[in-house]
Amino acid sequence: MTTKTIISADRLSKSFGAVKALQDISFEVAEGEIFGFIGPDGAGKTTLFRIITTLMLPDEGKVTVLGLDCVKGFRELRKNIGYMPGRFSLYMDLTVEENLNFYATVFGTTVKENYDLIADIYSHIEPFRKRPAGKLSGGMKQKLALSCALIHKPALLVLDEPTTGVDAVSRAEFWEMLKKLRKHNITILVSTPYMDEAMQCDRVALIQEGKILSVDQPGKITAGFSRKLFSIKAPEKYQLITALREFPLVNTAYPFGDSVHVTFRDDVYDDSLIGFLEAKGVSGVIIAETRAGIEDRFLELMEKK
């Protein structure tokens, strides 16, 4: 079965003065995928999404979206893309209902016509339909913005950091909603600075300083971690980290929640480690081999650069 390519980006570059926001970015997104761009602030995620949504021109390279060129075909393309910018573009002095009607009208449709598409999402905020958007909580604004971006039944939904600043419960609900949109065959391009959200995507691109570090299924990205990874715990975390960095066999040592993730130069450590740590005043040490996550891999790729 051949799947349709929805986005095809070929060697995109974009600079703002001396700042190279995007450098030689190439990737493809297939129909029905949830494709994530994962990277910190300033990595180039928003610039890339603006080019894909025809709001900005690349300096170099070519992007084809839904079979149309992003530069020449922008009029036709805009009808088929739903875009939710980082700062939700809602009218704060219009009510929930008025915002939704406004977006439907701009795209030449009605709320009624595509209601089935947004029903799952909009039903959460419908009880507040007479409330001004400015008076909604963060989680509710997010749901309204998503409803507005979907109301014209776009083939491609582009979401720029939809979960930033939103609590864990609303974030979990948001990802559930995105997964439900699959049955409508909508392709989703989403960005996030939070590495743990990579696991929610079908494929992800790790992006840093305008360059793609890796593109793959999240499981394959973590499998790409090239070393044995150990999780080391001790009650005195700060002393543990500083002592580990001084141990000759240690390659990298990074704090990870309640433990320190460590790689060794030849992937092994010997019995002298515990003695070494104890001599540094670190006792109660527990060492276990662990599996690398997206963030471990991201750190490894950043170091290689």
């Binding site: 910190p40 930033t164 600043g165 600075p193 590495m195 700060y238 980290i241």
Partner: peptide
């Protein structure tokens, strides 16, 4: 919020 993974870890080391 929004910092890269290496900076985030340096930040937590400062907290420790």
């Amino acid at each position: 919020g929004g910092v890269d993974p290496i900076t985030r870890r340096q930040f937590w080391e400062m907290i420790y």
